[in-house]
Simulated scan of single mutants.
Amino acid sequence: MSDNQSLSELYLTGSLPPEIGVTQLPQTLKMLSLAVSKLEHDPMPDLGKLPNLNILRLFARSYLGKEMTCQSKGFPVLRVLKLWMLEELEKWTVQEDSMPRLRELEIRRCEKTEQKLMVGGG
């Protein structure tokens, strides 16, 4: 899949085989939606390296882990992030300098997630 360098939008429904994981996605993606992907390892470090990603939507059961981290300098052009029904997610960490262009954040039914929001210097 990583060879398809003209692909800019992708909506995947269903489990991803381990050999196709998120590291195999084209660097040209601007919009990515995942649903029922059943990812067991935090996809954010790899997704954050996609240089053109503007919109990321992680829908029901796309990620089954308990922790997710958006690393520093990750998601350089991301404007929209939607996290829906990530039922096992307990902790979401956004490191400093991650997602500098984020304009829209929507979190729905991530009921186990810690409800803490820090803005600015802490």
Rank of each mutant, 00 (worst) to 15 (best):
L102I: 12
A60I: 00
E67Y: 04
P26A: 11
L47I: 02
V80E: 15
Y11S: 09
R79G: 14
P100I: 04
S72R: 14
L39E: 04
H41Q: 12
K91D: 13
G122S: 08
L12A: 04
G74I: 03
R61F: 09
S37G: 13
Q27S: 15
R108K: 11
E96I: 12
L58V: 06
L53I: 07
T69A: 09
N52R: 12
L53F: 01
S6Y: 10
E96V: 13
P45G: 05
M44H: 00
P45R: 06
T69C: 09
V80Q: 14
M1N: 08
I107A: 03
K116G: 09
L50T: 02
R79Q: 14
P51C: 10
K116L: 11
Q115Y: 03
R61P: 00
L7I: 05
G121S: 10
L16T: 04
L39V: 03
T113K: 11
T28L: 05
L86K: 03
F59A: 06
D3C: 10
L29M: 07
S37D: 07
V119M: 11
Q5S: 10
Q95R: 11
R103L: 13
T93E: 12
G121Y: 05
E104D: 07
L53W: 03
P76Y: 10
Q95M: 15
Q115F: 07
T23A: 12
S72Q: 15
L34Q: 01
M68F: 03
N54T: 05
R61K: 15
L47P: 02
V94G: 07
S72G: 04
L81I: 02
C70T: 06
L64H: 00
M118K: 11
K112F: 07
M31P: 04
M99L: 13
L16R: 00
Q24Y: 11
L32P: 00
E111P: 14
E106T: 15
E87L: 10
A60G: 00
S62I: 02
E88A: 14
N4C: 09
E9A: 12
P26D: 08
Q115N: 13
L29D: 05
V119F: 07
V36K: 09
L25Q: 01
F59N: 06
M44P: 00
R101F: 15
S98D: 13
L12D: 06
W92D: 03
Q95Y: 01
S98K: 08
P45W: 01
V119G: 05
E40H: 12
K82W: 02
C70I: 03
R103D: 14
P43I: 06
E114C: 08
T93Y: 01
A35F: 06
D42T: 07
L117Y: 04
E90F: 01
L32G: 02
R101L: 15
Y63V: 08
L78P: 14
L34F: 09
V94A: 09
G74C: 02
I20S: 15
P43T: 10
G122P: 04
L7P: 15
K38Y: 10
T28F: 03
L16W: 02
L81A: 05
R103A: 13
S15T: 03
M99P: 14
Q115S: 12
L25D: 01
R61H: 12
L7W: 02
S33M: 04
Q71A: 01
L7D: 13
L50S: 00
A35E: 12
L58M: 15
L78Q: 12
L32W: 00
Q115K: 06
